[in-house]
Structures are given as structure tokens and as C-alpha cells.
Design a protein around this nucleic acid. Structure first.
Lengths: 138, 138
DNA sequence: ATTTGTTTTAGATATAATCTAAAACCTGTG
DNA sequence: CACAGGTTTTAGATTATATCTAAAACAAAT
């Protein structure tokens, strides 16, 4: 895994301690956290990073495609530093958002003429741990 | 196409003039509008429907799976009353969100154990009208 | 060390969505 | 049709999410 310094260099972004902290937080927490979640996590570490900086950093990294922004679920935007091809699954019972491996042939072919920059595959339902426990009956 | 009264009956929702207006707006505007967009559209018609009612109605219809909620793009949630299987494409140049037909075999198979309730396929890029005009170079 | 452009910051602002409780409405029943 | 009782609507307040601002701090090249 690329370290935060290399990642920032690859993105053409100046290396600041705040950006490094955000990247390292994402590398340690592969739970698809929200900006607020990252901010709170950093606060607990007494990192002294402001909310605006967390948003700014996520925006810069996202613009460079170094992280994915996920609009899954109802709440805030979530972020994922794992950028290779994969789908996402959100469990309606436990709320967890999981990575789902994708094969090359799972990628849908669009009609001629569309120039695709980004593909998002989102599934919602019950994960193997929560499925079959009657959650879907209610 | 089912009329608004039938649709509400199928959802087990009382038939009110406000709900009918929201449904009919969605049937006439297949542009994946936001709640705010629907509210403004209804205001222009002097429909006298409040913002809260637009949100309430969309939430009820969504809970009954009578409409799709789309978390595509950066802004607000968008709504689609066309609920049969299809993907969505958002153009980075013109902003339009288009329906993309999907074949049964385009639906990705998840690993064993996952109980899928909803699948969302979102693509972002340049639509045939905007592609090849240098927008992706900038 | 100096310079210059970039980044960070706290708080204000903007945007999206939900909550509140009173009034209005829908629908089934008589 | 009139009534009763639960449901829905409403305007405005509130919450949640994200961005803006301009001054201060910082990074990186010299």
C-alpha cells in the first residue's frame, strides 16, 4: 500500500500533516466513513485537524481519483481509499457497508457513444450475517 | 401507465390531492427531479403543496417501492417513478441524468448469502451528445 | 532565510432534509 | 349525508451536511 506521502505526490498535492492524517485514517478504517466520522476520529486522536480541512482534503483526493466518493444510504457521503474495481453492499439490518469483489465481466457495457468516467454498483439488502433472521419480514 | 389514484391504492396510501399532484408531476417529468425541483414545479402551478408534504410523499412512495430514490451526483436525492430494471447515466457536461436500458444478464450476481433488495447501477461521464467535444480534456 | 503561492482554520453561511403540533382532510360507518 | 377517528398537511423551526470567507500558518523552491 502506498504511503500517504507518495499518494499526495502522485496526486500533485502538497504534503501537509493534515492531508497525511486524513489519508492514514482512511487506510486504517476501511469502513467507508463519512467526512464527519473522519473528523471525529481525528479529534479523538487530538490531531487538531479542522472540519473544513477534512472536507477540502477529501475533495482534492477525490478530484484526483485517489479515493472514491460513495453516495450509498441516506446520510452523508462516504469515502473509500480502495479504488480498484469493486461493488458495494449496504446491510439494512447492521448498517455495514461492505466491498464486493467484481469480475471484469461483471462490468456492464453501455450503449455506443457513452464515455464512462466512473461506474458505481450499489446493492442494498441483508448481508450473510443478518440474512435469514427475519429482518426482511417485519 | 397506472394513474395516481391506482398507484396510491396499490401502496395502501390514502388518496390525497397533494400525493396525486406529486405522482403526476413525476409522471410528466422523467428528468429525475429533486424534491426541491418537484416542490418548485408544483409552486409554479399554484398547486399549494408544501415542501414537507413533497418530502413526506416521496418517502412514503419510496418505502412502498413505487418510486426509486437516486443518490447520483453531488447534490440532493433524485426521484424516478419508472421502477423497472434500468441503470442511470449522469453527464458531467450537460448535467442530464439518463435512463440506460439493462438486460437481465447485466445484473451482477452477488456471492452466496447476500439477500439483495435493491440494485443501483450509476455511471458518470459524457453522454453521446457531449462526448468528443473536448470536455474531458480540460 | 526569504519569498510566494498554497493550505488551514473557526465561524458564518448555504443547502438538504426532518421535526413539530395544530389544523385540515380522508375514509369507513351509521 | 353527517360523523368520528385516524391520517395528512402545513409553516416554520430545527437538524444535518457541506461550503465559503479572509486572516494566519505553512510548504517548497530559491
Amino acid at each position: 500500500m502506498k504511503n500517504s506521502r507518495e499518494l499526495l505526490a502522485d496526486c500533485g498535492l502538497n504534503c501537509t500533516k493534515e492531508r497525511m492524517l486524513v489519508i492514514e485514517y482512511l487506510q486504517r478504517h476501511r469502513t467507508h466513513p463519512t467526512a464527519e466520522g473522519i473528523y471525529e476520529g481525528l479529534c479523538k486522536m487530538n490531531a487538531g485537524v479542522s472540519r473544513a480541512t477534512v472536507f477540502n482534503t477529501l475533495k482534492s483526493l477525490s478530484a484526483q481519483k485517489a479515493i472514491l466518493t460513495l453516495q450509498i444510504g441516506d446520510g452523508a457521503t462516504r469515502y473509500d481509499i480502495y479504488t480498484t474495481r469493486h461493488a458495494h453492499f449496504r446491510c439494512l439490518n447492521c448498517g455495514k457497508i461492505e466491498d464486493i469483489p467484481m469480475k471484469k465481466e461483471d462490468v456492464m457495457q453501455l450503449p455506443f457513444g457513452y464515455e464512462v468516467c466512473q461506474s458505481d454498483y450499489h446493492f442494498t439488502g441483508y448481508c450473510p450475517e443478518c440474512s435469514g433472521k427475519g429482518h426482511s419480514l417485519s
